[in-house]
Design a protein around this nucleic acid. Structure first.
Lengths: 223, 223
DNA sequence: AGAGTTCTTGAATTTTTCTTGACAATTTTC
DNA sequence: GAAAATTGTCAAGAAAAATTCAAGAACTCT
């Protein structure tokens, strides 16, 4: 899943440099000189961006105002790219939810590292794909071919546990534990949940893409 | 809409001066000498105040404690009015969510400017649309198909928070926090507010356009 | 102080999920 | 191939969660 970066930087040379470097590393970059244009672009579809890189020294607008407007609209991580003199503003910035600082001049490589760190912290990178499934454990959301399917809490627990042990068969007892069910729960109950889960994610027990029954043992997520 | 100011200042002369000046500029001021009284007043109806002006040099109580207690109860902007020597404490203050500083002595005019700046910053200035809804966070107004609906303060807080987390389910606990409700508030209370909110914006729980219930998790604004 | 809102919460109602027995289908064992 | 064990799913009732009602408390405004 390729990450989208919104870059707001008024120095053309710098903009070009960062843009090229990020692209080289597989990021999709939309770069703006004018913060107002950037904001209007952001507000159109705020959730497509995974991270914002923001220069504090901007024309027409205070960088912190931009920051605040972005955060109000959507809680995306922001990395400030500031001149070294602005360290004093750091506190102010962290108040506004800024996620990291880089003092110019910096190595482009450093920027990549910071972006990765921020995304990791956000837990955005934890969203993963298996076949047609996209699983977002933090938000307990699953999509099949981009359609959201609504799993019940137990189904979600089972899926996450199976996924965690991907490639290994797990017993019904383990699944009962994983879903925090009472220890005296019947095995049939698990079978039923698995059946419902398979149905929701479009899996066929006889010819499974995801969850295979291990006869006499339990279930396993195909790895 | 006249703005309410909570003033905490132990010097009677100063208190009087600020009070008069703010009143002259159309603000409603409640002034206290004793921070404990001020806190108790604040806690009675936290959401009526638009801004708090706080003297750091207080009797019986550390100014930062007052600050923290206020922020715990409700996230209202705070402007510190401190003696010039206390600049070193700034960092401490910003950590606590203080919004601005004024070093005594200052021109009353300066205070007005700071208050306006803080209120402007608070005001999320962009209107936006979702389906048939138009939401104006700055003025806390919502229209459905161009008809204004009057939301209560809590309903507005909930709607804005859900909108901010659009596409992600949020728990009732998060909503309780977001609306600055007491932490021991029952979950039913949130359900009730959501029910009323849905009714006002013309949403049907069984077939929602805006707010979907996530069974076992909470609510989410459809994204 | 009193009228009108808004807020909170227990309880009734509705909806969704969970559990389990039943039985058919499948796999293993002998 | 028959018997035994295991798995898949239906359907019905139990349990849990969500929604709404209703009444009283708290708050706002005049």
């Amino acid at each position: 899943m390729t990450k989208m970066v919104l870059l707001i930087e008024d120095d053309p040379q710098m903009r070009r440099l960062i843009c090229d470097y990020l692209t080289e590393f597989g990021y999709d970059v939309e770069a703006f000189e004018d913060p107002k244009e950037a904001l209007s672009r952001f507000c159109r579809t705020p959730r497509v961006f995974d991270v914002v890189i923001l220069d504090l020294m901007l024309p027409h607008m205070d960088g912190f105002d931009v920051c605040r407007k972005i955060k109000e609209r959507h809680d995306v991580p922001i990395i400030i790219s500031s001149a070294r003199g602005d360290i004093g503003n750091k506190i102010h910035g962290f108040e506004l939810g800024v996620d990291d600082y880089l003092a110019k001049p910096y190595e482009p490589r450093e920027l990549i590292l910071r972006i990765e760190a921020v995304l990791r912290r956000q837990g955005r990178s934890e969203k993963f794909q298996v076949g047609d499934l996209t699983i977002d454990p933090a938000n307990r959301e699953v999509t099949v071919e981009d359609f959201t399917v609504s799993l019940t809490p137990i189904e979600m627990d089972l899926l996450l546990y199976l996924l965690q042990k991907r490639g290994h068969a797990v017993s019904r007892e383990q699944l009962i534990q994983a879903a925090s069910l009472p220890p005296d729960t019947r095995n049939r109950t698990i079978d039923m949940h698995i059946s419902n889960l398979r149905h929701k994610i479009g899996d066929d027990p006889k010819n499974p893409k995801y969850i295979r029954s291990q006869w006499g043992i339990g279930y396993k997520f195909i790895g």
